[in-house]
Amino acid sequence: MSISTLFENYSEFRHRHPDGDVPHNPYKWAMAIDLDACSGCNACSVACYAENNLPVVGKEKFAHGQAMHWMRIERYWDQDGREFPDRGARYLPMLCQQCEAAPCETVCPVGATNHTPDGLNSQIYNRCIGSRYCSSNCPYKVRYFNWYDYPTTDNVWPAEMNMQLNPDVTVRSKGVMEKCTFCIQRIRGAEIDAKTQGRLVRDDGELQTACQQACPTSAISFGNLVDPESKVHKQWRAQQVDLDKHEQVKDEEEGGTDLRGYRIYEFLAPYPSIMYLERVRESEI
């Protein structure tokens, strides 16, 4: 072990966001979620259970707040004291925001959560010792801890049910932190395939996250933010949301903006990689 790695680790893998002319290259995975299209149906969440070997914790543990849903659908009501919520509810799929300057990364004592060169906030289960500092420092509370040893817990994956487990994804044991990975197994698969064919991953459905693939209203788009042809890139551009700003220029316009794109807790400057598009309601009804 060389002393040089001691210093390297932090400058290289913990950079806040691409500086000026050194962007992520060739990939920066990002998402855009259209809340006007999202119907709150939970399909993404169940798809995530299926893809990522999430344990079903059961009623008692759910009651204790120990659910493991990486993708959770939050339902909000308007808060204006009307008798009925006659503008409907507001749904928000909340998952790891894959922050560029992730508050979770700096605090992990063993460096189990890191930034990958393609802009993901990775979680290394083997390295995690379970100090849970990352979750403590996560503003979105989207990190989930294995409070129990689910693989050996009754009725989580009883015989036959365990045959469904995705062999591309680790089954986590007790004492480690986990969270949405943007389906890193799919990302790596596609990246490697593309590399062996001497090209980049295409933005044509070659790579979809499980939630995106299931979403019946196609509210979720996912892709390479660096690729100017990708839908995600175009969406972010059209909404004038810049990855490396914690205050968007458009928000400073007088009278607000008519663009729907926003990121949650931008002011904390974690530079999240997920842009949401505001829910819309008709004014004339």
């Binding site: 072990m1 060389s2 790695t5 001691l6 680790n9 932090y10 913990r14 700096t106 605090v107 992990c108 004592p109 063993v110 460096g111 390295r127 010792i129 100090s131 500092y133």
Partner: peptide, 19 residues
């Protein structure tokens, strides 16, 4: 893992972490 012990993988703990 939290100790900076010499190891073959050249993995250090995270010196940025207050923990």
């Amino acid at each position: 893992f939290a100790l900076p012990y010499p190891n073959m993988r050249q993995v250090w703990p995270n010196f940025q972490s207050p923990l």
